[in-house]
């Protein structure tokens, strides 16, 4: 589910950026630092919508860097346990299938796929009912319920923001949401099929 939320962050800025364009520098650094990141509490920060307030800077002892408290609004995406989502299947194997809903990955185990659906191997591995009327394969759209969520270990902390620029140059996510889902319930399952059987 998407959320609109107000967050705060202490931005550290090198003195060379001070001047007329200070505000622009802070905002562009904020965007670079925050967008695309993920935390267990808030989920994926998809986009910053506005900067509410930039507080007074504080010089860090001994360095000359200045920290600015920045309050900003952003759109976040976070999955919840019990939430129903529509996701696109990205991979199918005998253990179950993986699906993606926006930036979130969801695994649906074969125990949580209805019993009448059987795994069929081949070029296009899929789960099919015995009469062949329903098929789950890559790029199928499924409606599923999230029953478990997990964020991979490295959760971002506001206070370690100084160490961030060293990693994540290519925008790879330091932490990712991973969910377990089920389609074994009423009104869950395939919505449409790419092959249109």
């Amino acid at each position: 589910m998407f959320f609109h939320i107000v967050l705060e962050r202490n931005m550290q800025l090198h003195p060379r950026h001070f001047g007329r364009n200070l505000r622009e520098h802070i905002i562009s650094k904020l965007m670079k630092d925050v967008e695309g990141t993920c935390s267990g509490r808030h989920g994926f920060v998809v986009a910053i919508t506005s900067v509410e307030n930039i507080g007074k800077g504080l010089i860090r002892d001994g360095t000359g860097f200045v920290t600015f408290p920045v309050k900003y609004q952003c759109v976040v995406f976070r999955p919840f346990k019990g939430e129903i989502l529509e996701a696109v299947v990205s991979m199918v194997n005998k253990m179950g299938f993986f699906a993606e809903a926006g930036p979130v990955q969801i695994f649906v185990s074969n125990h949580l796929i209805p019993d009448d659906m059987e795994f069929q191997s081949g070029d296009m591995p899929n789960y099919t009912t015995s009469d062949g009327s329903v098929k789950i394969q890559k790029d199928s759209e499924v409606r599923l319920k999230i029953i478990g969520t997990r964020v991979d270990a490295t959760e971002i902390d506001k206070n370690i923001s100084q160490s961030r620029p060293k990693w994540d140059p290519a925008g790879s996510h330091p932490s990712r949401f991973f969910c377990i889902g089920t389609i074994k319930d009423d009104f869950l399952g395939v919505i449409n099929d790419p092959t249109t059987i």
Binding site: M1, H4, I5, V6, F80, K81, G82, E83
Partner: peptide, 22 residues
């Protein structure tokens, strides 16, 4: 489980969060 979990959407996020429809 879904009963308490659905409700927790509001509780798990800070108060200044607003749910958005897709």
């Amino acid at each position: 489980e879904a009963l308490p979990l659905e409700l927790r959407v509001e509780q798990e996020l800070p108060k200044n969060a607003k749910c958005l429809m897709d």
